[in-house]
Design a protein around this nucleic acid. Structure first.
Lengths: 133, 133
DNA sequence: CTGTATCCTAGGGGATACTG
DNA sequence: CAGTATCCCCTAGGATACAG
């Protein structure tokens, strides 16, 4: 512990930085909304509560597995509430929580930026790809 | 083509939805900022232009491969400009473009939301996990 | 200093079939 | 209706070594 090799110092810095990343709220939230289906599911729920099959119908691209997984994750994070009506057959309804509602304006910001800048971004990509000979 | 099975109809809806998703600007942008290192690299660059080694030092968690890949991707999308000074050894500097600067407030929004709501999110997770017996 | 090249693994995500 | 359970693939990302 008196002296340390450069490799050891790098290792330590990496470990410290990794735990910093894990604790970073921004990174955490980005990890949530960065998932493939969260934004679209959330968008559906801004239109009002929806049942499982409603979502599956509105989002034909999602597999049953991913729909369930996305919903569970959103529920775990407190963005969505799941309520079961014990009829036959059972009815399950998903709705935004207050926390979920607070996420909506953020998604709107992303959307606003995206719609105003996507043309420039895509133009840049084309230019970049064209330059690659 | 006169009649269609339910499976065929589902297939068609899925294909249509998939291409819609591909074209969706919001989803596109989310895909960019959702990558593990984009937000932190971008944050470094908001502090001013940085060289490759500066970034590597500031971000001990990134591998050389991912740093390069992240930078290339950001350059391709037009968020970052790469300029090479042909000295010996060469100097390469990365800086935000105007488009990149426009992305900064959005990241700030994410950060703002994250910092104000992360406690509630994490509390929800703990509660959810505790309920799972 | 600024990267490439290679190899490898974990897990996100899809397809299909089955259940209370 | 509202999911599970399986199997499988593919890519994001890490480690290590090498190169201009």
């Amino acid at each position: 512990m008196t002296t340390m090799t450069a490799a050891e110092r790098r290792q330590e810095a990496k470990a410290a930085f990794d735990s910093y990343m894990d604790a970073c709220p921004t990174h955490d939230v980005l990890g949530v909304i960065g998932n493939k289906w969260t934004s679209v599911v959330l968008f559906q729920l801004t239109q009002g509560p929806r049942r499982y099959a409603d979502l599956a119908r509105a989002l034909p691209g999602v597999s049953a597995k991913m729909l369930t997984q996305t919903l569970r994750s959103l529920e775990r994070d407190g963005f969505v509430a799941r309520s079961v009506t014990p009829s036959v057959p059972v009815q399950v309804e998903y709705a935004l929580t207050l926390l979920g509602e607070r996420l909506v304006p953020l998604l709107a910001s992303v959307r606003h930026f995206a719609e105003h800048n996507i043309a420039e971004i895509r133009a840049s990509r084309e230019h970049y790809d064209a330059a690659a000979d």
